[in-house]
Design a protein around this nucleic acid. Structure first.
Lengths: 171, 171
DNA sequence: ATTAATGCAAAGGATTTGCAATACC
DNA sequence: GGTATTGCAAATCCTTTGCATTAAT
């Protein structure tokens, strides 16, 4: 169990045991938390939020728009950006660059209950996720040593994934 | 002494002890390392590189252009971006977002010999730098557990600096 | 003489915005 | 009816590119 505070609302959430990998990380329930915060859920907003929640990869704004339009063709790009802004403001999604592997766009994902690292393979583009108690300890140290109250973290690592590392030995 | 790999070339380079204005992190000598790599140093390139090296803050492209133009008014924006690209390719500078505190631009700094964290105060915009053995341990763990060869890391943390944290108690 | 670096202006990609139209309570 | 959300198109911000010119070896 743990306590999270955001916008003056204090929530108690339970953590599941987490190893690693995109799907194994426990994620926030976006609609539920928006409702708790008294945010109105309109038809389009619901579709966008559900699309992010259901995503099995990190979505950029254009992909999110595409996916959402399969459910409602009227959804506009501006609404996508405005909804992302809303979710960011409420700290329900994280914004990533994924080391700019593909241009300057951003990627989004439902926040996980425990922060995690993104490992971006500079060769094949594969993204791995990794959470670790060491990361939590580092955060605690930052708070303690700098008197810095952490709100959001973003740790991205670029390099060679294990597969590409193997391959390159015979390149 | 340290070993660096870039573009398939492995170099052993010596680091000079450089103390910068904003922290006491030791930074790479950009001109020296470019020379070691056989990169031609033209007049404009020298100015741009020296400007980055001498900077006491994280520079965005527009600011770098401004500063460099005080030394040579002919320097063009395209040259700035091309030089930054060159330095990135050689892993001599790090590219930062600083949590997008001010728009979508990037910030650049001469690489430090030891990776560090950027703490961005979401309230006052202050940037603090922080390096820690725990960060090194986390990196080692990433390599060990995922078989991931780290080339570059970027850890940015957003929140409240100690000053703003104090203030907000009486807001 | 050949190759690399630069200037210029235009294009490009991602995101934001002003305002009118629409949906929600 | 009044407020919040959305569509549309244009604007904006940051970065990149094509091509002609200039500099470097």
């Amino acid at each position: 169990m743990d306590t999270v505070e955001s916008h003056g609302v204090r929530l108690t959430v339970s953590f599941k045991s987490i190893v690693m990998g995109f799907t194994n990380l426990e994620r926030r329930s976006l609609l539920q938390e928006l409702t708790l915060r008294g945010v109105r859920i309109t038809g389009q907003r619901r579709i966008l939020v559900e699309t992010i929640q259901a995503a099995s990869t990190h979505l950029d704004a254009a992909t999110l728009l595409d996916l959402a339009r399969r459910r409602d063709g009227r959804i506009n790009r501006a609404t996508v950006y405005r909804t992302l802004e809303l979710l960011k403001r409420h700290r329900l999604i994280d914004e990533l660059d994924l080391m700019h592997l593909t241009g300057e766009k951003h990627y989004y994902e439902a926040k996980t209950t425990v922060d995690h690292v993104h490992l971006a393979c500079l060769r094949c583009g594969r993204i791995e996720e990794f959470s670790s108690p060491l990361f939590e300890r580092l955060k605690a140290e930052i708070t303690r040593q700098n008197g810095f109250q952490i709100v959001v973290t973003r740790l991205e690592v670029g390099g060679r994934c294990s597969q590409c590392g193997e391959k390159s030995k015979t390149d």
